[in-house]
Computed example of a mutant assay.
Amino acid sequence: MIIAFFLTPKQDVIWLSEEATMRQALEKMEYHRYSAIPLIDEEGRYTGTITEGDLLWKLKNTKGLKFENTNRIMITEVPQHMNNKVVRINEKIDSLIDLAKTQNFVPVVDDNGVFIGIVKRGDIIEYCAQLINARGEN
């Protein structure tokens, strides 16, 4: 089975442009109730993942920074503490299992490195549960 089977396409993924501000990230995370969001550059390439923790550490460690002025901080100025690894769309499902242990989602790119979507940890777990149930190993 290939990764494309599990893909949530880019148009259905909440992501941020690298041109976004810290305020936009905070508001998008709050609205969608996500703890991490992929970052995409102007060429459509995945460049990283911004997390709630990244935003909190930036707020804590930047003198004078308050929620009211987070619109002045570009998302690229927020250090990322998580390094989500990507997979290519034509890889097999096996490459997702190890990544899903430490990542909420796995970014998926095409052969040119362009972001095309994600595979959610929950979808991987559901697939594994179905395999176990099909074998009768409860």
Rank of each mutant, 00 (worst) to 15 (best):
L55N: 05
V86K: 10
E43R: 15
R33S: 10
E30C: 09
V108D: 06
Q130W: 14
Q24K: 05
G136E: 06
V86A: 10
L99P: 05
E27L: 08
V119Q: 02
L56I: 15
I3T: 05
E52I: 07
P38S: 05
Q103F: 04
I37A: 03
N69C: 04
T47H: 05
W57E: 15
I37Q: 04
D98P: 10
E18L: 08
Q24Y: 02
H81N: 12
G48W: 01
L55A: 03
P79L: 07
T70S: 04
T8A: 09
G117T: 00
K85I: 14
L65K: 01
D111R: 13
R45F: 13
N71E: 14
V13F: 01
F115G: 02
G53T: 14
A25W: 02
I50Q: 02
C128M: 15
T21P: 03
F115A: 03
H32Y: 15
I75N: 01
F105K: 06
N133C: 09
L99I: 06
A134L: 13
N71S: 15
L99M: 05
M22H: 01
G122Y: 08
E91K: 09
N138M: 13
A100H: 06
T76W: 04
E68Y: 08
D12L: 15
W57G: 09
K120V: 12
M74P: 09
I2Y: 15
L59A: 05
Q130F: 13
I37N: 00
N69W: 06
E77M: 10
G53K: 14
V119D: 04
K60F: 10
V114S: 08
G122D: 09
I124A: 06
S35K: 12
T49P: 05
Q130S: 14
F105N: 04
N133Q: 12
V86L: 11
T76Y: 07
D94M: 11
L131E: 11
M82A: 14
S17V: 07
T70W: 03
Y34K: 06
L16M: 01
M74N: 12
R72K: 15
F6P: 06
T47L: 07
E52P: 06
R88C: 12
R23P: 05
H81S: 13
N104C: 09
K66T: 13
S17F: 08
F115E: 04
R72T: 15
K66V: 14
V87R: 05
G48T: 00
W57M: 14
G44F: 08
I132S: 01
L65M: 01
R135L: 14
S95D: 13
Y34Q: 05
I132K: 03
N90W: 15
V109P: 00
C128P: 08
K60M: 10
E126P: 07
P79Y: 07
P107G: 02
D111I: 12
I118P: 01
D111N: 13
V108G: 02
L131C: 10
A20I: 05
V106Q: 02
K28R: 12
V119C: 03
N83M: 13
A20Y: 02
G117Y: 03
L96F: 06
E19Y: 10
I93W: 08
I50H: 02
Q11D: 14
L16Q: 04
R45L: 09
